[in-house]
Design a protein around this nucleic acid. Sequence first.
RNA 1: GGUGAGGUGCCUGAGUGGCCGAAAGGAACGGUUUGCUAAACCGUCGUACGGGUUAAACUGUACCGAGGGUUCGAAUCCCUCCCUCACCGCCA
Length: 421
Amino acid sequence: MLQVPFIRQNTDFVKERLAFKHFKELEVVDEVLELDDKRKKLTLEYDETQAQVNSLSKEIGKLMAQGKKEEGEAQRAAVAALKEKLGPVNEALNETEAALHNALVKLPNLPAAIVPAGKTPEENEVVRQGGKIPDLYAGAVPHWDLAKQYDLIDFELGNKITGSGFPVFKNKGARLQRALIQYFLDYNTSNGYTEYAPPYMVNETSAYGTGQLPDKEGQMYLTQDSYFLIPTAEVPVTNIYRDEILKDTDLPVKMTAYSPCFRREAGSYGKDVRGLNRVHQFDKVEIVQLVHPDKSFEALDEMVAHVEALLNQLELPYRILRLCGGDMSFASAITYDFEVYSAAQQKWLEVSSVSNFEAYQSNRMKIRFKENNGKPQLVHSLNGSSLALPRILACMLENNQTIEGIQVPTVLQTYYGSHMI
RNA sequence: GGUGAGGUGCCUGAGUGGCCGAAAGGAACGGUUUGCUAAACCGUCGUACGGGUUAAACUGUACCGAGGGUUCGAAUCCCUCCCUCACCGCCA
């Protein structure tokens, strides 16, 4: 969440940036400031009164010890009077703090300066395009047909076992998927990321920390024990450092993790969900960084280059989009989406999203660091997919299909064990 | 699922009503000494929110799992909840 002192000092700027993100309830900004004023006033009143109570109580202790009972009794009455006043003040203070917090979490992160204006996905800015869009032979088909033809993925079977959106990978399909995961993790760790295998369920606090809660509970599966199935490894991995104060020399923290991701995507059935395009359970390898606030844009560029290198090595045609203000996620200050071109569907599919959250997540999670003997400051957090498996797989199958079979990119051949499916 | 124990600062761990934001040890950091390393010695070593200041200094309040209660006064007593650990049962 945003920091109140910053909002206070840059009120107009905050409103302007929020409007840029097409956030409607700008009055919440003023509400935050009013509640913060109220909070300060009540805090002062409470503290001063409590200070009197404390000092009187100490005196009573001494008087009693000295056997001066009458004086002690008189003081007790004084304390009782103060405490009568204190109750309502305390109650008002608690209410105000809760209200302030509720208002504060309504405010999304501010878009960074270089975020393009716009509201819809059509207004996202294409930053770069790379790789070659293949000319497919006349009989080329979409991946769901290839999946059947080569016996790689069984969508019907998933319906039987669980429901729609839970594909079953089999044979070479399962193997290819495993090869990709292995390859991604190896690539990440060789670039300084520490590998984690996190829990696939998280508690409410963790879901809140990365911004899934409040609001987006509908997008997650909730278990009987009130744990959420993770929608991305970002959630458990970023929470590793929740409530920690790092040393500046610990930064940057670079983490990577493979995990399945579970998404309810309620009400999203329709044309775009065929095959692997949108499913309820999919695999993904994620990268997360916690960095010094001065370095987060540098880190962002590094992560973008990292993901781009992966796509180049996989020989997939891709483009990088800088999301416009209105299309960015709630907690993000800037986001780059990576899309690969699915030649048989003739469609761009999102396979990665790399974001800088600046201090928005770390403020919620209280992930901080200390420089020398300075005060704790919030780190900046970033994350990105490297990469989401199903669409990569879909694209790879479609783009690499030939009459003889499906070609496996060079970089994957040792992992997969063959050059052809 | 059953039974028992327990949650104190970066860690270990003392503390059962006022002198406790909290002993002691360890770790870490700074320094002295040393040819280097080690050892030894000295010092520093919580967080949040207020007040104050150009900034500090200084100062108030809160925090010993969370929330409530008793009391003039709570880490310490009471209640509720959460969590962890151990053993048994079941099981990969």
